[in-house]
Design a protein around this nucleic acid. Structure first.
Lengths: 126, 126
DNA sequence: CGGTATCCCACATGATACTG
DNA sequence: CAGTATCATGTGGGATACCG
């Protein structure tokens, strides 16, 4: 063995972890999926449930999710006309990983905040 | 029932999903944790395993992970002197959620890319 | 070895106005 | 209703140089 104890595995910026972060790491994607997991929604119905999102950003995010195959877009004929967004099977398959993450977050959110406060106190004093 | 079929739950920008994304949604955090899960590493040992990271950004990211309680920082006396970073129990507790996410990614990465290509073809032609 | 200090730019997001 | 167009801005990240 040369330098390090374990032979080095080099992580590159295009590591598989990026795949999911590039898709869901933005501000609204996960919340959109959380809305659509209940049932399909129209554009403005989604917008009403996301406090503070702008039309522009919502459109962008929906396009990205559609491009990645997470949601489908369907134009509704009839009156009133509209567009409906719904989860695809791929999008639905995210539910389990999300549930695990969500559970972890709820379990540890207090611990995290305590660490942050302790760290900030040390910085302020020291 | 008034407006929507289900009574609305409004998602705000400070949704719990942000907690984890704010900490691990950046470019290098997950890879750093993946390095440290093997064993504690020194600063430059981590740097060598992350292709393309700069000292500045690595320092920033390590500080953030430390502040959030994911990793610990220990100054090594002796020769040569140095600093060692290691996972805390909190950081280690992320292994299971990560494993689930990683498995999902490996399972569906092909499907995602096919969706992306199909979407881009339609855009180019249409 | 393990950092800081500057400078810079690309990109994500937001505000606002307009449209088929 | 469901967008597009335009403009503005904050921040993440990179390049580079210097420091104890």
């Amino acid at each position: 063995m040369a330098n390090d104890t374990h032979d080095a595995f080099i992580y590159r910026a295009d590591c598989p972890s990026r795949v999911i972060l590039d898709q869901l790491g933005d501000k609204w994607s996960m919340m959109i999926l959380a809305v659509l997991v209940v049932e399909p929604h129209r554009f403005n119905a989604i917008k009403r449930r996301l406090e503070g999102v702008t039309q522009r950003v919502l459109t962008q995010t929906l396009r990205k999710l559609e491009r990645n195959g997470m949601i489908g877009r369907r134009v509704l004929g009839g009156s009133p006309p509209g567009v409906e967004y719904a989860l695809t099977p791929l999008g639905r398959s995210l539910q389990k990983p999300f549930a695990v993450l969500y559970e972890w977050t709820l379990t540890h959110i207090d611990t995290i905040q305590k660490h942050q406060q302790a760290y900030d106190r040390k910085r302020k004093v020291g």
